[in-house]
Amino acid sequence: MSEFFTRMGDGSGIYMTAAEIREDILKGVKEAADHGKIPDLTQEEMDYLFDIITMPGNIVGVERGREVVSTSDSGSCKMTYHANIAMERSMAVMVSEKVLGADSIDIGNMDYSYKAVKQIVHNETPVMELAQLNAVIPVLYGSMPNLGLYTKPDGPVENWSELLPLAKIDEACAAQEEAVEHAVRDMVFVAGEMYEAGADGINLDTCGASGDADFLAGLLATEKIKEKYPDLGVEIGAAGEFVLGMHGKLEYDGTRIAGLYPHKQVKLTEKAGANIFGAVVNTNTNKTFPWNIARTVTFVKACVEAAEIPVHVNVGMGVGGISMSEIPPIDVVTRADKALIEIGKADGL
C-alpha cells in the first residue's frame, strides 16, 4: 500500500496511507464543525484538500490568478531573531519589500506590547518615518494589548491569575476591567504617535491572549483609533480559535466575547471598525497535518463567509495548520497556504 509523507503537528515527519489521510481530514473537519457549530466542508472540498496534501513536490503553490496579499506581525524583527541577521528594522522593511516581495509589513519592538512601547515611542517613531520614506508597501506598527502586563507587580492592577485560584471572582473580574482601560489608553496613544510618524496602519496583534478582556481592549481601542484617525488602517489579529474566558461576562455591542469562534470574532471586529481581521486557529501538536489543516480550513471558510472585511489568516509557527516547530517545514507551510486560499477563501495571509 503506498504511503504519503506528511507531518505531525510538532513537525516530525510521518507516512500515512490515503485512507488514513482521508480519515484524519474528516475528523478534523468534524471537530471544527462540532466546536464552532459551523458547517462541514463539502465532500468535494475534502477531496481537494486530500489532493493538496498528497501532491508530489516539496513545495506547492496556488493556481495562477489565485494569489493573495500578505500582512505580517512583527515582520521587521523576524530576519533578526529567526535568521540571525542583525538588521535595523527599517532596513528589514526594505528587504521584505524588495527581496521577499511582501505586500505589507509591520514594525514592532522586541518588547512587543503597547504598554512597553509607549515609554519608548519616541525611539520607535523615527524607525517608522524612515521606513515610510523608503517603502512603497503599506507599513503598519504592531504590538499586543498584553493585558497581563498591567497586573502587579509589573502594573497597577491586582493580578487576576492569583485572585482566580483563590475564588475571588469579583475581584479578578474588576481587575480585568480596570486593565482594559489602561490598555486602551496605551494603544490609542501609540496609534496616535505612529499616525503622526506616517504609519499606514496599526496592528493590534494577538488580541485575546490574556482572555476576553484582552480582546475587548482591542475592540475598544479600535473604536477610538478610528474615531480620532479615520484614515489609519487597523488590523486586529486574534490569539486563538476561541476567545478564552478569563472574565467570562464581558460583552461588546451586546455580544458576550468569551467563547467566540473566528466567524463570530470577525463580526465584532467589523463593528469596532477594523479593516483587516487576522483569524487564528491553533495547531494541535498531537494530531497530524491532515487533521490540523482540515480543522483550520473549516474554521476559516466559515469566518470568511461571515466576514465583510478582509480575513488574513495567521499562518506561522503553531497556527493555521503550521507545525509547532522552530522552523516551520516548507512542505507544510505551502500546503497550508494553498488550502486556506483555495478552499478557505482567505483574502490574505
Binding site: L164, C173, D212, G245, M246, H247, G259
Partner: peptide, 8 residues
C-alpha cells in the same frame, strides 16, 4: 471548547 469560562 470555550463553552464555559475560567470563573466557572
Amino acid at each position: 471548547r470555550g463553552e464555559i469560562f475560567m470563573p466557572e
